[in-house]
């Protein structure tokens, strides 16, 4: 049963994808690192198309190259082979139109919350800048903390600062690398639903890395399942459940179990 479900899932195409213009495309992307004189292949033959405004989760075991792929898409790393295109142009470096959200580690400790969120808005006149900063402080629920320094905030609040800092520059694409991995499970759930709310309001293209199957199935339009190193795309699963998702619905469980089966895990422990 689970194999037929996964087969169905594998064939399913995202219902809205054909109508979405392609935002990001990877063509035979391969990545290898040189380590102690040997080449270590990390990614092999990654072919992926992501539609404009789509929410895609990259799911895979630790060390399979998810962060590497995301860094390459963001322009921090050059792929060893193949090409990554955004809006039809080859990615050649970091760009403010596509922001990478690190775990809360990326917040600058020497700037206040306001300073962090306004970091990418240096070119705006100060009044406009303050307005935007305020807008996003409110959007992520940090009212009253504008003058606080990151060390005065909890992990979840720092993560909100990072997300707000990214949103403030109004990027087309956001890359999130296990953004909620360091949070406690309750905060993580809250942050997930807030990210969905923001995504539905702003319709960015989102590439979201996780190793948590439930997180992927709760959030994504499509889940890209990757195999262990060297990372390849094993399967792409469309999650055809409208938001807000009922995580006890048969379809949710079917899709989740299909992915579990695909990566060789029964859902019974």
């Amino acid at each position: 049963m689970s194999s037929s479900a996964s087969a169905r899932a594998a064939m399913a195409i995202h219902p809205t994808l054909p109508s979405l213009p392609i935002k990001l495309r990877t063509e035979n992307v391969g990545m290898a690192f040189l380590r102690e004189g040997k080449t270590l292949p990390v990614l092999e033959d990654i072919n992926l198309e992501v539609g404009n405004g789509e929410f895609v989760c990259l799911l895979g075991p630790s060390g399979c190259g998810k962060s590497t792929l995301l860094s390459a898409m963001a322009g921090f790393l050059r792929p060893t082979s193949g090409a990554i295109l955004i809006d039809g142009e080859i990615v050649r470096g970091a760009d403010p139109r596509r922001i990478f959200v690190f775990q809360e580690r990326g917040v600058f400790p020497w700037l206040t919350v306001e300073g962090n969120i306004g970091f990418g808005l240096r070119k705006l006149p100060s009044k406009e800048r303050a307005e935007r900063v305020n807008h996003y402080i409110q959007m992520v629920g940090l009212e009253g903390f504008g003058k606080s320094y990151p060390h005065e905030l909890s992990g979840g609040m720092k993560q909100r600062v990072e997300v707000a800092r990214a949103l403030a520059v109004n990027p087309d694409v956001m890359f999130l690398d296990e953004p909620f991995g360091a949070l406690d499970s309750i905060t993580r759930l809250v942050m997930r639903s807030e990210l969905l709310r923001i995504w539905q309001a702003e319709r960015k293209t989102i590439l979201f890395v996780t190793h948590d199957i439930d997180e992927a199935v709760q959030l994504a339009d499509r889940v890209v399942v990757m195999s262990a190193r060297p990372g390849r795309i094993q399967q792409v699963v469309s999650i055809d459940i409208p938001h807000p998702r009922d995580i006890s619905s048969p379809r949710y469980l079917e899709l989740r179990d299909g992915i579990l089966g695909q990566i060789g895990l029964a859902h019974r422990l």
Partner: peptide, 13 residues
């Protein structure tokens, strides 16, 4: 200096 700060700075142009 942690690489994330450098990458974040670059990312914001």
């Amino acid at each position: 200096v942690p690489g994330v700060y450098i990458n974040a700075g670059r990312n914001f142009g």
